[in-house]
Write a protein that binds this DNA or RNA. Structure first.
Lengths: 129, 129
DNA sequence: TCGATCTGGCGAATTCATTCGTCACATTTC
DNA sequence: GAAATGTGACGAATGAATTCGCCAGATCGA
């Protein structure tokens, strides 16, 4: 019985996804090792979370090998875009720009990064003159 | 008994906050009128949400007038920054830049807006040459 | 081989967000 | 002043996220 796909991954699910993105694929034990460093939860909990995430379609499982290997169902990039879009919609009333401006102004950008932003802007302006 | 402050406002709470930010301050009835357009919930629900939000410190209440007037406890800008920071931390591994680049690339920026971004970048670069 | 350990599945307890019904009290209206 | 309506407090039901305990079977090491 698949659960609703509509909602975003929750806090813990995201932490698990990050572990999977980094490793490319992990056993339940490996996920648990990564997870237990930040949260003191038990192995059993980790396995349960993975099975819930499997139900939701957030992860895939390779059952051909033992122990089974879990992988993120969606790339990090796609997930980021989706969550970003959600935030823009809910918190910035759909205006991506005000988000960009606020993120820029937060002052955490290095000179290199600003140059990169400038490059992207140049590129985008080139497309629609 | 105040609830935890740590967590971000939830979906519905955000909708209520948006109503309050726009109006500057509203009675429970007014909030309900705004809310019921997007969700078919009852007046009772709205009042309950407001009281929960009061407990959480998300809204303030002026009890000197009748009916009481609710106001957002934090400005829209501060809330946005906080939620943005949260997303950057959780989903972008702390890198504000990759978020900015992704938001820019999402292609929703108009020429005017791009110019604005360029202006900000100029300004920021001027500060740390 | 046989006990120790690991793996993964299931159900249940807990917590929190969301929703509503109901009650008490104030305000308005006739 | 009495009925009608509005306001706000409370507790409880629902549903989802998170957590864990326990069990069966697989695997490993001596």
């Amino acid at each position: 019985m698949a659960r609703a796909v509509s909602s975003q991954p929750t806090e813990v699910e995201l932490q698990i996804l990050r572990i999977l993105w980094e490793s490319g694929g992990s056993t339940a034990r490996e996920v648990h090792n990564g997870l237990t460093e930040i949260k003191g939860t038990t192995y059993s909990t980790t396995v349960k979370m993975l099975s819930v995430m499997l139900e939701k379609g957030l992860v895939k499982r390779d059952e051909a090998v033992t122990p089974q290997v879990y992988r993120a169902a969606m790339s990090q990039k796609v997930t980021q875009k989706r969550m970003l879009g959600d935030l823009i919609e809910k918190v910035y009333n759909g205006s991506a720009m005000s988000l960009v401006l606020q993120a820029l102004s937060s002052g955490k950008a290095s000179t290199d990064e600003l140059a990169e932003v400038r490059r992207i802007v140049d590129e985008l302006e080139g497309k629609k003159p």
